[in-house]
Protein backbone atom coordinates (compact mmCIF):
# COMPACT_ATOMS: atom_id res chain seq x y z
CA UNK A 1 0.00 0.00 0.00
CA UNK A 2 1.26 3.46 -0.90
CA UNK A 3 0.92 6.40 1.43
CA UNK A 4 -0.54 9.50 -0.14
CA UNK A 5 1.40 12.69 0.44
CA UNK A 6 0.95 16.40 -0.13
CA UNK A 7 3.77 18.93 -0.23
CA UNK A 8 3.13 22.50 0.88
CA UNK A 9 6.31 24.37 0.08
CA UNK A 10 7.00 27.75 -1.49
CA UNK A 11 10.53 26.91 -2.58
CA UNK A 12 10.37 25.09 -5.90
CA UNK A 13 13.79 23.37 -5.60
CA UNK A 14 12.86 22.09 -2.15
CA UNK A 15 9.58 20.69 -3.46
CA UNK A 16 11.30 19.14 -6.48
CA UNK A 17 13.82 17.27 -4.37
CA UNK A 18 11.17 16.17 -1.91
CA UNK A 19 9.00 14.83 -4.72
CA UNK A 20 11.93 12.83 -6.04
CA UNK A 21 12.69 11.45 -2.60
CA UNK A 22 9.06 10.34 -2.28
CA UNK A 23 9.22 8.59 -5.65
CA UNK A 24 12.51 6.96 -4.76
CA UNK A 25 11.16 5.67 -1.45
CA UNK A 26 8.56 3.64 -3.30
CA UNK A 27 5.95 4.15 -0.58
CA UNK A 28 4.80 7.74 -0.87
CA UNK A 29 2.73 8.91 -3.80
CA UNK A 30 2.61 12.69 -4.01
CA UNK A 31 -0.95 13.86 -4.64
CA UNK A 32 0.05 17.43 -5.13
CA UNK A 33 2.34 20.32 -4.41
CA UNK A 34 1.09 23.72 -3.25
CA UNK A 35 3.17 26.87 -3.13
CA UNK A 36 1.28 28.31 -0.18
CA UNK A 37 -0.96 27.18 2.63
CA UNK A 38 -4.14 28.87 1.39
CA UNK A 39 -3.93 27.01 -1.89
CA UNK A 40 -3.52 23.72 -0.04
CA UNK A 41 -6.44 24.14 2.37
CA UNK A 42 -9.22 23.18 0.00
CA UNK A 43 -7.37 20.15 -1.31
CA UNK A 44 -6.47 18.95 2.20
CA UNK A 45 -10.09 19.24 3.31
CA UNK A 46 -11.44 17.43 0.24
CA UNK A 47 -8.74 14.78 -0.11
CA UNK A 48 -6.89 14.41 3.17
CA UNK A 49 -3.59 12.67 2.50
CA UNK A 50 -1.87 10.21 4.80
CA UNK A 51 1.10 12.50 5.08
CA UNK A 52 1.71 16.23 4.79
CA UNK A 53 5.15 17.71 4.15
CA UNK A 54 4.70 21.22 5.42
CA UNK A 55 6.91 24.28 5.28
CA UNK A 56 6.40 26.78 8.08
CA UNK A 57 7.35 30.20 6.76
CA UNK A 58 5.43 30.86 3.58
CA UNK A 59 3.71 33.86 2.04
CA UNK A 60 0.28 34.32 3.64
CA UNK A 61 -0.63 31.98 6.43
CA UNK A 62 2.10 29.91 8.03
CA UNK A 63 2.32 26.16 8.18
CA UNK A 64 1.21 26.21 11.81
CA UNK A 65 -1.82 28.33 10.95
CA UNK A 66 -2.69 25.82 8.26
CA UNK A 67 -2.64 23.04 10.86
CA UNK A 68 -4.88 25.15 13.11
CA UNK A 69 -7.44 25.41 10.32
CA UNK A 70 -7.57 21.74 9.45
CA UNK A 71 -10.40 19.79 11.04
CA UNK A 72 -8.37 16.64 10.95
CA UNK A 73 -4.66 16.95 10.36
CA UNK A 74 -2.85 14.13 8.62
CA UNK A 75 0.53 13.03 9.87
CA UNK A 76 2.86 15.93 9.39
CA UNK A 77 6.55 16.23 8.65
CA UNK A 78 7.64 19.83 8.94
CA UNK A 79 10.22 21.07 6.48
CA UNK A 80 11.90 24.30 7.42
CA UNK A 81 15.22 26.07 7.18
CA UNK A 82 15.06 27.26 10.78
CA UNK A 83 15.45 25.34 13.99
CA UNK A 84 13.59 27.81 16.17
CA UNK A 85 10.25 26.15 15.54
CA UNK A 86 11.14 22.91 17.26
CA UNK A 87 9.11 23.70 20.38
CA UNK A 88 6.01 24.64 18.36
CA UNK A 89 6.48 21.53 16.27
CA UNK A 90 6.44 19.46 19.42
CA UNK A 91 3.17 21.08 20.48
CA UNK A 92 1.58 20.22 17.15
CA UNK A 93 2.59 16.56 17.57
CA UNK A 94 4.27 16.44 14.20
CA UNK A 95 5.98 13.21 13.22
CA UNK A 96 9.29 14.89 12.49
CA UNK A 97 11.03 18.13 11.72
CA UNK A 98 13.33 18.27 8.71
CA UNK A 99 15.75 21.12 8.29
CA UNK A 100 16.24 22.11 4.65
CA UNK A 101 18.22 21.09 2.80
CA UNK A 102 18.10 17.47 3.91
CA UNK A 103 19.48 14.31 2.39
CA UNK A 104 17.60 11.22 1.27
CA UNK A 105 18.91 9.32 4.29
CA UNK A 106 17.49 11.94 6.61
CA UNK A 107 14.22 11.87 4.70
CA UNK A 108 13.98 8.09 5.13
CA UNK A 109 14.65 8.36 8.85
CA UNK A 110 11.82 10.82 9.06
CA UNK A 111 9.37 8.65 7.16
CA UNK A 112 10.25 5.74 9.40
CA UNK A 113 9.08 7.77 12.38
CA UNK A 114 5.53 7.95 11.07
CA UNK A 115 2.88 6.36 13.16
CA UNK A 116 2.35 3.29 11.12
CA UNK A 117 -1.36 3.12 10.67
CA UNK A 118 -2.42 5.99 8.41
CA UNK A 119 -5.18 8.01 10.05
CA UNK A 120 -4.85 6.01 13.22
CA UNK A 121 -8.33 6.63 14.52
CA UNK A 122 -9.90 5.02 11.46
CA UNK A 123 -7.63 2.00 11.42
CA UNK A 124 -8.26 -1.27 13.13
CA UNK A 125 -5.29 -2.57 15.11
CA UNK A 126 -4.81 -5.50 12.76
CA UNK A 127 -3.88 -3.12 9.94
CA UNK A 128 -0.83 -1.90 11.83
CA UNK A 129 2.37 -2.12 9.91
CA UNK A 130 5.96 -1.13 10.15
CA UNK A 131 8.30 0.23 7.50
CA UNK A 132 11.92 -0.77 7.66
CA UNK A 133 14.79 0.38 5.49
CA UNK A 134 16.16 -2.47 3.39
CA UNK A 135 18.71 -1.83 0.64
CA UNK A 136 17.93 1.87 0.52
CA UNK A 137 14.18 1.39 0.19
CA UNK A 138 11.40 1.22 2.70
CA UNK A 139 9.92 -2.23 3.09
CA UNK A 140 6.43 -2.52 4.50
CA UNK A 141 5.80 -5.35 6.94
CA UNK A 142 2.36 -6.05 8.31
CA UNK A 143 2.35 -6.67 12.03
CA UNK A 144 0.86 -10.11 11.65
CA UNK A 145 3.46 -11.33 9.18
CA UNK A 146 6.37 -10.66 11.53
CA UNK A 147 7.16 -13.75 13.61
CA UNK A 148 9.97 -12.30 15.63
CA UNK A 149 12.77 -9.75 15.51
CA UNK A 150 16.35 -10.60 16.26
CA UNK A 151 19.26 -8.34 17.17
CA UNK A 152 22.46 -8.69 15.18
CA UNK A 153 24.57 -6.01 16.84
CA UNK A 154 24.13 -2.84 14.80
CA UNK A 155 21.57 -4.63 12.64
CA UNK A 156 18.17 -6.12 13.29
CA UNK A 157 16.61 -9.04 11.46
CA UNK A 158 12.86 -9.30 10.91
CA UNK A 159 11.72 -12.87 10.42
CA UNK A 160 8.53 -13.52 8.49
CA UNK A 161 7.24 -16.89 7.26
CA UNK A 162 8.47 -16.05 3.76
CA UNK A 163 11.59 -14.04 4.18
CA UNK A 164 14.13 -12.45 6.50
CA UNK A 165 14.78 -8.71 6.29
CA UNK A 166 17.88 -7.10 7.72
CA UNK A 167 17.93 -3.42 8.56
CA UNK A 168 20.48 -1.15 10.16
CA UNK A 169 18.98 -0.39 13.56
CA UNK A 170 19.08 -1.43 17.19
CA UNK A 171 16.77 -3.76 19.02
CA UNK A 172 16.13 -0.97 21.53
CA UNK A 173 14.83 1.36 18.83
CA UNK A 174 12.72 -1.36 17.33
CA UNK A 175 11.27 -2.25 20.72
CA UNK A 176 10.07 1.34 21.04
CA UNK A 177 8.66 1.30 17.51
CA UNK A 178 6.55 -1.84 17.99
CA UNK A 179 5.21 -0.86 21.38
CA UNK A 180 1.48 -1.49 21.52
CA UNK A 181 1.62 -3.85 18.54
CA UNK A 182 1.43 -7.09 20.55
CA UNK A 183 5.17 -7.58 20.46
CA UNK A 184 7.28 -8.30 23.50
CA UNK A 185 10.97 -8.30 24.20
CA UNK A 186 11.69 -11.72 25.67
CA UNK A 187 15.46 -11.61 25.62
CA UNK A 188 18.07 -8.92 25.07
CA UNK A 189 18.31 -10.08 21.46
CA UNK A 190 14.72 -11.07 20.69
CA UNK A 191 11.36 -9.39 20.30
CA UNK A 192 8.52 -11.80 19.61
CA UNK A 193 5.11 -11.30 18.04
CA UNK A 194 2.98 -12.87 20.77
CA UNK A 195 0.38 -13.93 18.21
CA UNK A 196 2.94 -16.16 16.53
CA UNK A 197 3.94 -18.10 19.65
CA UNK A 198 3.03 -21.79 19.39
CA UNK A 199 4.43 -23.03 22.65
CA UNK A 200 5.94 -21.83 25.88
CA UNK A 201 8.44 -24.05 27.60
CA UNK A 202 10.79 -23.46 30.46
CA UNK A 203 13.00 -20.62 29.28
CA UNK A 204 11.97 -20.94 25.64
CA UNK A 205 9.28 -19.94 23.21
CA UNK A 206 8.49 -21.90 20.09
CA UNK A 207 7.59 -19.87 17.03
CA UNK A 208 6.88 -21.90 13.88
CA UNK A 209 9.26 -24.58 15.08
CA UNK A 210 12.00 -22.12 15.94
CA UNK A 211 13.20 -21.92 19.53
CA UNK A 212 13.53 -18.45 20.97
CA UNK A 213 15.30 -18.04 24.32
CA UNK A 214 13.47 -16.21 27.09
CA UNK A 215 15.66 -14.57 29.68
CA UNK A 216 14.96 -15.10 33.37
CA UNK A 217 14.05 -11.48 33.86
CA UNK A 218 11.34 -11.72 31.20
CA UNK A 219 9.82 -15.11 31.99
CA UNK A 220 7.12 -14.07 34.45
CA UNK A 221 6.02 -11.20 32.25
CA UNK A 222 5.95 -13.44 29.17
CA UNK A 223 3.67 -15.90 30.92
CA UNK A 224 1.36 -13.09 31.95
CA UNK A 225 1.22 -11.60 28.46
CA UNK A 226 0.60 -14.93 26.77
CA UNK A 227 -2.34 -15.65 29.03
CA UNK A 228 -3.80 -12.35 28.02
CA UNK A 229 -3.57 -13.06 24.31
Amino acid sequence: MMLSGVIVEDLQPAADILRRYCQRSGIIEVQGHFLNAEAALEHLAARPPDLLFLDIEMPGISGFELLDRLQQAPQVILTTSKTEYAFDAFQYHVADYLRKPFTYERFLQSVQKLRLAPREADSAPETERIFIKVDGRLQKLERDEILYIESMGDYVRFITPEKKYITHNTIKNIEARVQGMNFMKVHRSYIVNLSSVDDLRDGELIVRGITIPVSKTHRTRVRERLKAV
Binding site: L11, P13, A14, E57, S81, K100, P101
Partner: peptide, 13 residues
Amino acid sequence: RRVIHHVKPLFGY
Protein backbone atom coordinates in the same frame (compact mmCIF):
# COMPACT_ATOMS: atom_id res chain seq x y z
CA ARG B 1 14.33 39.09 6.73
CA ARG B 2 11.35 37.31 5.17
CA VAL B 3 12.84 37.62 1.70
CA ILE B 4 16.31 36.56 2.81
CA HIS B 5 14.88 33.61 4.69
CA HIS B 6 13.93 32.07 1.36
CA VAL B 7 17.38 32.55 -0.09
CA LYS B 8 19.13 30.62 2.64
CA PRO B 9 18.34 26.97 1.88
CA LEU B 10 18.86 27.52 -1.84
CA PHE B 11 22.60 27.72 -1.27
CA GLY B 12 22.35 24.47 0.61
CA TYR B 13 20.88 22.79 -2.47
